[in-house]
Amino acid sequence: MDAVRNVIAGESREPASGDWMDLVDPSTEKVYARAARSGGEDVDQAVAAAAEAARAWRRTTPAERQRLLLELSDLMTEVREALAEAEVRATGKPRGTALSVDVDGAVDAVRYFAGAARLLEGLGAAEYAEGHTSFVRREPIGVVAQVTPWQYPLMMGRASAATRDA
């Protein structure tokens, strides 16, 4: 049976607790895989690894961010059918919806943020104090952990991206 493991710092890992849960296809009510039942220790490790990765990401140029995001969208397009199949199995939704709304919507969002990576601009700049120019600089500020709802997993990644800068 397939197993969905945690991926932390680019490594596939067992859950710290050793606990697993069954993944059930809601349209057949059959178990099709098992998933790590992650807990606080797993989340702490993932957040620490993401915070470390964010230090390097902050130093990347807009051009490099755009290139990497476009590469990700191309990879998502290459595995479009597999992503849709995973959505269908996990949620029980119709395949057409999984393809057109979830997968294509997520690919479109990644491409949108790839373009936005080169268009970051300050909200305002002016001389508020004599001899000084003040401006607003938008930049990533941190890492979050998220629990996604069962019926919308891929698109929740898209929604999360929409709440922060590219």
Rank of each mutant, 00 (worst) to 15 (best):
S38C: 13
G39P: 11
D42T: 10
D42K: 11
V43K: 11
Q45E: 15
Q45H: 14
A46P: 14
V47E: 09
A50L: 08
A51L: 06
A51G: 15
A53P: 13
R58S: 10
T60I: 11
T61N: 06
P62S: 07
A63M: 14
A63Q: 14
E64I: 12
E64Q: 15
R65S: 03
L68V: 14
E71S: 11
E71D: 10
L72G: 04
S73E: 10
S73T: 10
D74K: 12
D74E: 07
M76N: 00
E78L: 12
R80F: 03
E81F: 00
A82Q: 07
L83H: 00
A84R: 01
E85L: 04
E85Y: 03
A86S: 09
A86G: 02
A86L: 14
E87D: 05
V88N: 02
R89L: 14
A90F: 03
A90T: 05
G92W: 07
P94C: 02
P94H: 00
R95G: 00
T97C: 06
T97N: 07
T97V: 13
A98P: 01
S100F: 04
V101Y: 03
V101T: 11
V103Q: 03
V103T: 02
R111F: 03
F113G: 06
A116E: 11
A116D: 06
A117K: 01
L123E: 15
E127G: 07
Y128V: 14
Y128A: 13
Y128G: 12
A129F: 11
E130W: 10
H132W: 14
S134G: 12
F135R: 09
V136H: 10
V136D: 09
R137W: 04
